[in-house]
Amino acid sequence: MCGPAGAGKSTVARRLEEDGMVRLSFDQEAWDRGIRSMPLPSDLRREIEAELRARLESLVAEGKDVVLDFSFWSRRTRDEYRQLLRPLGVEPETIYVATSREVVIERMRARRLAHGDDYTLPDETVAEYFDHFEPPTEDEGPLIVI
C-alpha cells in the first residue's frame, strides 16, 4: 500500500486481508502496544519496523501473500522493500491510493482514535505529510493506482 495518512490505504488493505492476504500494519502494531498518538519517536518506529520486516520475511518464506499497510511515502523506502523482497523471489506490486489533499485532511479530522487505523493528527501535520509524499511512478515496478 502506498499513500499519505488518510488516503484510504487501510480500507483497501483490510479488503485484501479479507480475500486471504496477511496484513501487516504499522499503525495497528503501535495500537496493539498501547500507543495512542502519532508520530512515533524514531527509536520506537525503528523497533516496530524491524519486527514487521522480520514477520514479512517469515511470511514470504512460508509462501504467504502479504499486504504492507504502510505509507511508503518516499521512493527510497519503497526501493528498500523491493530490494529486501526480490532475493526472496517476490516482485512487489505497489497499490497507490491517490486521494486529494482536501479529502485526506477531511478524513483525518473525522478520526476519533476508535481503533488502530484511526490515529488523529493535527491539520498541519496531515498537510505536511501530504505535501512531502512522493507518488510512485511506473518505472518503480508493478503499479496499481486507485
Rank of each mutant, 00 (worst) to 15 (best):
V67H: 06
S37R: 09
V22T: 14
S58T: 12
G3D: 09
A13H: 05
R112F: 06
D65R: 13
E57T: 08
P136T: 03
V145A: 10
I35A: 11
F130K: 09
E17I: 02
M108L: 12
R86H: 05
P135C: 08
R76H: 10
E134D: 12
L88V: 02
D65P: 04
G34T: 11
F26G: 01
R107F: 04
M1Y: 03
E91A: 06
L68Q: 11
G8L: 00
G20D: 01
P136K: 00
R55G: 02
P136A: 04
Y129G: 01
E134N: 11
V97C: 12
S74D: 11
L52R: 01
P39K: 09
Y119N: 06
A98T: 04
P142S: 01
H115N: 15
L143K: 01
M38N: 10
D139S: 08
H115C: 11
A61T: 06
A98V: 07
P4R: 10
A110F: 02
K9Q: 05
D131C: 10
R23L: 07
V126G: 10
K9T: 00
E93S: 10
R14V: 09
L40W: 04
E140S: 01
K9D: 01
Q28C: 03
E102Q: 13
V12T: 02
R112L: 05
L52W: 06
R46M: 12
L59A: 04
T77W: 14
P87G: 05
